[in-house]
Design a protein around this nucleic acid. Structure first.
Lengths: 349, 349
DNA sequence: CTGAAAGCGCTAACAT
DNA sequence: ATGTTAGCGCTTTCAG
């Protein structure tokens, strides 16, 4: 089972390696040569070595996906969507987990090693160091998430502002006027954007009482811990907007333990519309941020940039859609159809 | 930002490429040479090209993980565990999704292209074709899941027999004597093993009534559809053993819709102990099959085989542990501590 | 300790 | 249409 090289195939077919290569790659060659080479290759069990091809061609046919936390359902959904596009285009997908902010910088720097032709990066925190590394990146790169507006990169992002507006408007329409926002860590990109969105959305309404708490993490446990003191008081809010579904489920658990009835005494909403939101009772009203669409868009954008390195930077914004469930409404569940996504070219100059 | 090669570094340092290579790789070289080369490399921003190194060294420092369904929480958990081990060992992780059985065969065949140094494969169905491909694989390979006993491969597997025994014994101890098994597709490896386990476990008890249904898939929707006709009859079972948590949640939903109280009128159990089981109400009693441990063990096993290709085939079996929740018991939740895993060498000859 | 040179397996000029 | 040859960027003999 030792490695079979194209030299052996050529020898067996009685032609030069060049002819063998051409025949195998469907380039110009006589029918007879093609037949001989094909046969020889089959008999020997030849498969071209990917590394040698990469070195010669200058492309690896590999793309990378770097994400802070594999295991988070949202990133998994994106990953699955990315994998679909990537493998359909003949590329392989490389996965890296970038726990800390600095390790995502490392990943970007490491791109110089040339083991991928492009990278999709989903950073949890955007530091100046990371922006500098991005600007210096030697290969195409798409950022999944919000960047400073000044940065000219290909980007796919959710619309947190609209998302929070959908949620707040829905709660206000349902008669809730005392709304608490339970965020995750505010120094993360999603934390920052959702906070901003909540504030802007609340500002649209008169006579609203709002409060803000940061859970220590985007998890059920952190959501529970943050909600407990918030809900265990006489002047507790009548609605809680959680920054993601996990926190939202934590809030539901806290309410349950405190004997607070949802939605009668308290409405709760989440963000991301994960399977959890659907499975929990009462079902958790949530805004779908379009993880699948974002993943697909990012992968397609990366392929487009690889195909045309000169094209201007694009920013695709995936619109959110509200899915109403029992945690915020006594009536039947409903969902809005997702609007079309928005693709903008970055003006140059 | 054009590619910097070792030749340029050598030129700048005023040494030969050979010396530059040696200095960079910590091989034998004078302190002065090392200093000059290091400086030149830093100034030029040199990073060694991974592809060229791979070609020369004959190793890619890449490992693959091929799985039928990314997105299934269990495989995600394994993947996360694998990624941790792999990246800690200086390897990169490549992900492939093998929807169909034949595509997993393709993945194994494609290994001849040499883009990874080893592969972890988690096949949903084991066909003769796949076994043949495995036997012919040119690189180290670990199978996550059950194989025919005759096959001499490195394998990591769950102990479905014990798992089903834990569940059935628990239900019987709780006084349930009419137990239905809602399986996923029986022609899959997990489906087959869990079915077998359920039958064996039931055989340990006298006067047990059992029934078997196959859901069309390991999903909530399929579990719901399978459970509805089973539960909507006067002689419905007093307990349902679901082949995984998703099906289990489907069963809970069906019971809910039929107005059947869990656990008073019906006990339900799942398999995998995913986050879903914890979050659902009542909590779903489930057997943890040790996805994380299996992932870690598989990755370590693969690295061990790469380090020593001659070592005998190992089979690691990860023991299950039962986590009792409200869906099968009115009393407080409880979990057994996980026993140690079992590592056997395959006898040769 | 260092440099020259070979060569990993393949593709792409270039010449025929 | 085919063969010869160079070379992708690197590591590793082999002389010196």
């Amino acid at each position: 089972m030792a490695r079979v090289t194209i030299t052996q195939v050529a020898a067996r077919a009685g032609v030069s390696v060049a002819s063998a290569s051409r025949a195998l790659n469907g380039l110009i060659a006589s029918a007879e040569t093609v037949a001989k080479v094909r046969d020889a290759a089959r008999e020997l069990g030849y498969v071209a070595d990917a590394t040698a091809q990469s070195l010669k061609r200058g492309r690896t046919l590999q793309l990378g996906y770097a994400v802070a936390d594999i295991g988070n359902p949202v990133y998994v959904e994106m990953m699955a969507a990315i994998e679909r596009v990537v493998s359909a285009s003949g590329y392989r997908l490389l996965l890296s987990s970038t726990g800390t902010a600095s390790s995502s910088v490392d990943v970007v720097r490491d791109l110089g090693r040339g083991y991928v032709d492009g990278l999709i990066l989903s950073p949890l925190r955007v530091t100046d160091e990371l922006l500098a590394a991005l600007a210096a990146a030697p290969i195409p790169l798409v950022v999944l998430g919000r960047l400073p507006d000044s940065a000219e990169f290909d980007t796919v992002r959710a619309d947190s502002l609209t998302a929070m507006r959908l949620v707040v408007d829905h709660l206000v329409a349902a008669g809730r006027r005392d709304i608490a926002f339970v965020n995750g860590p505010a120094d993360t990109t999603p934390g920052g954007m959702r906070r901003e969105g909540f504030i802007a959305a609340a500002a649209n309404h008169r006579d609203l009482r709002t409060r803000h708490i940061d859970a220590s993490d985007f998890t059920i446990a952190a959501g529970y811990d943050a909600a407990l003191p918030l809900l265990d008081r006489t002047d507790r809010p009548t609605a809680v907007v959680a920054a993601n579904d996990l926190i939202g489920v934590g809030v539901l658990r806290a309410a349950e333990d405190l004997g607070i009835t949802v939605p009668a005494d308290l409405a709760v909403t989440g963000v991301d519309d994960t399977e959890l939101a659907e499975v929990v009772r009462p079902g958790l009203t949530s805004v779908d941020l379009g993880a699948k669409e974002r993943g697909r868009a990012a992968a397609e954008m990366l392929l487009a940039r690889i195909a045309d390195p000169a094209r201007p930077a694009h920013t695709v914004t995936v619109p959110p859609s509200l899915v109403v469930r029992g945690s915020s409404s006594a009536s039947a569940p409903s969902a809005l159809r997702r609007p079309e996504l928005i693709d903008e070219e970055k003006a140059h100059g």
